[in-house]
Structures are given as C-alpha cells and as structure tokens.
Amino acid sequence: MSKQLDSIDEELAEWLRSQHVFFVATAPLSADGHVNCSPKGGDCFRILGPLEVVYQDYTGSGAETAAHVRENGRILLMFCGFEGKPNIARLHGQGELIAPGHTDYESLAALFPENPGTRAYVRVQVERVSTSCGFSVPFMDFLSHRDTLDKFALSKGPEGMDEYRAKKNAVSIDGLPALPLPTEQY
C-alpha cells in the first residue's frame, strides 16, 4: 500500500542510505522528447535535510538527466529494496545541476569520496515523499560496486575527461543543452 510522508524521516533515511542502487527519472518538456531513467550506484547519495538530497553524478555516455534538470527541474529518485524488506521509496522534486564553477560545487564535493568520473552533483528539493510495497521486486545479491568508470576516467586523465564530456555530454539525445561548458557562467 502506498503511503505519503511529510518528509524523509530517520527510519526512511537509514533505509535509503543502505540501498546499493537507485534510479533517476526525468523528462523534457517536449511531448516528442525522450523520457530518461538512469541507474545510480556507488557511494553517491546524501540526505541534506528532511526535504533535500543530493547525488554525485558520474560521467556517462549521455547526459539526459543534466539536460532535463537544466530545462525544467522535474526529477524522481526511486529506491527499491532488493535485499531485506520489500520496500520502494520515491522522492519527487525539483533538481538543480551543480557543475564545476557553481558556488556550491566544492561544498557538495566535500560530502563525497573523490571520484575521477564525477562531472556534477544533482541537488533535489524534495516535494513529495512516498513509500510503497515492493512485493514483486526480486531478491538480488549485492556482490560489489564496479570500478570500470574509475579506471576509464583515470586512463583519460582530467583533460581527456573534459574532452570526452565536451563530445558526449554537451547535449541530450533531443538536442537540449546538458552539461555546462567550462566557459559557461552560473
């Protein structure tokens, strides 16, 4: 049964922090645009307050979430209990892309382990917190986090990663601006 909460209480916060993966969903304003859902893993999620969260956004082959958040801010974070209790939690809200050059970038970076694949942070002002049963979500065993992105980023180095992001992460598949260029100002 679905339940709406006033905020992220301590019980939910503890459960959210214990999950190994969560999913981020966004969409452009255009009805012809592509809806996006991305898995997130690693030590990349923090709760900043009862209605505020942030996650460390790693470099990927695209940047749909960044583009959608920059365009309209709408975002959903969904957590599923693949171990333990069969829970699902959804955090609906307004996201903000915090890329290098943003006044809050360094203070958010201090909350996370340094990662060579980090390209930005996505801070979310949570507007709706809900939980529901995950009775149909399968049990899955967590083996470990992958280190493939870390190795890729280290092999490219900072300049190589900047070039990769400029080539692969500048615009969404729908042509929306995604990651700010280093020369863009907030």
Rank of each mutant, 00 (worst) to 15 (best):
C44P: 05
L91H: 04
P50R: 08
L29Y: 07
A25L: 02
S30Y: 09
G95C: 03
V137K: 07
G42T: 03
D6P: 04
A110H: 10
G42L: 07
M140T: 05
P50E: 11
A120Y: 00
T148E: 14
V35L: 12
V137P: 04
L97E: 03
D43C: 14
V126C: 01
E114C: 13
L149H: 06
D174E: 12
K156Q: 15
P113N: 13
N87D: 12
G134E: 09
S172F: 10
D43H: 13
D162N: 05
Q19W: 03
D9H: 06
I75H: 04
R146T: 15
R123C: 03
A27L: 04
M1R: 01
Y186A: 10
H34D: 09
P50F: 10
L97S: 02
S136W: 09
V21C: 08
L111S: 08
R165G: 05
A67W: 08
L48P: 00
A166D: 06
E71R: 01
F82T: 08
H145E: 15
D57V: 10
D141C: 09
A31G: 15
L176M: 04
P116N: 11
P39D: 11
T59L: 14
R128H: 13
Y186P: 05
S132C: 03
K151Y: 09
Y55E: 14
P182M: 13
Y186N: 06
L179N: 08
P100A: 12
G49A: 00
V21W: 03
P177Y: 09
S172A: 09
L179H: 11
E10R: 09
I173L: 15
P116F: 11
V129L: 00
D32H: 13
I173W: 09
T183Q: 08
V54A: 12
M140D: 01
K167E: 10
R119S: 10
E14R: 14
S2F: 08
R146L: 10
P180E: 09
R128N: 12
R70V: 08
L143C: 01
A109L: 06
Y186I: 06
E96K: 11
G81P: 00
G42C: 06
S2G: 02
P113C: 11
W15R: 01
P180F: 09
E159P: 01
L179S: 06
S130F: 00
K168C: 12
Y58Q: 10
V129E: 01
I47F: 04
G84D: 07
T103P: 02
G81R: 12
T118V: 00
L48N: 02
A178K: 04
R146I: 08
L51I: 02
L12D: 01
F23P: 00
T148H: 14
G41E: 05
R46Q: 07
Q94G: 06
F139C: 10
T26N: 01
D9E: 13
R146E: 13
H68F: 08
